[in-house]
Design a protein around this nucleic acid. Structure first.
Lengths: 149, 149
DNA sequence: CGTTAATAGTTAAATAGTTGAACAGTTAAA
DNA sequence: TTTAACTGTTCAACTATTTAACTATTAACG
């Protein structure tokens, strides 16, 4: 196995990361469908895993301004997917939770995505994909350090 | 090294791919700047590498409708980054090329991105990152098969 | 206490990107 | 030559985003 130089690796990383991102998004869009946009699905996933959360928390996790979260939550609230509940002790705070409908829609879409990703992963040698994911997770940590934190 | 089951790998892949995508976009947005959106930069890169291309070609590569390309190209054309030239033989076709200004802007931003990615890659063992990119490229091919063609 | 700071979230205007449907102009096929 | 296919555009509607101004609430401190 020859040793490509750094510039070659950089070029290939830029090309492949863009390509995979686009193709994965297309695949989810075309094969999952589900009336949810990517961002909406990720939002539902975050709230589902957190149980409940605030707009500020979402804004920090997704690295967007709070007003963007307000707009997105409002759209999902209008569709009956998300509930807003004011904190009784600190009345500035609004807790976001999934409605039953929101949870059902999320679980259904998430299940399809799991099947899709599993079918992709199964086409690899397990040791290879495991190593891949571990390096991916390292990269995620490095990116956390490079950003604000 | 223990063997995690498939479900665990699927969960981790979904989580980490989303996280890296968001963080990488933030990093580029915050550290590159450049007056170009991500999509605009990718469009300039594609045209730069192709030399010239058509709207239909971009629509297929980016997997969006042609009207989305028209809108994006028009915005960049208004900023003087892209030229439209009708084909003299087949007057339906419009060739897209970078203007001098478009090329300069692209090269400047691309150079910063290269430096950024290089600084990330340098934090890894070279054999590890090389293997990572190779698996990433395999994944890209698998995704190509899973999509339209 | 009362004024000032900070915090949580919203609103509004602007921009980017997207789809779907209808359309114009051009070329190819029957 | 009429019909079909292709290339690209326009328009209306929508999602996502930023910036700046704003409301309401809580915290700090002199």
């Amino acid at each position: 196995m020859s040793m490509p130089d750094i510039k070659n690796l950089v070029d290939r990383y830029i090309a492949v990361s863009f390509s995979v991102e686009k193709k994965a998004a297309s695949l989810v869009k075309n094969q999952i469908g589900s009336d949810l946009t990517n961002d909406q699905h990720f939002t539902l996933r975050y709230i589902n895993q957190a149980g409940s959360c605030t707009s500020s928390e979402l804004a920090e996790v997704f690295d967007v301004k709070k007003s963007a979260i307000t707009a997105m939550i409002t759209r999902m609230w209008e569709k009956g997917l998300i509930q807003r509940t004011r904190d009784e002790n600190d009345r500035r705070v609004v807790y976001l939770t999934l409605t039953e409908k929101g949870n059902e829609l999320y679980v259904k879409a998430e299940d399809k995505i799991h099947n899709l990703v599993e079918s992709l992963i199964n086409r690899f040698d397990q040791a290879e994909i495991q190593q891949f994911i571990e390096t991916f997770e390292k990269l995620d940590k490095v990116l956390s350090q490079s950003n604000g934190q």
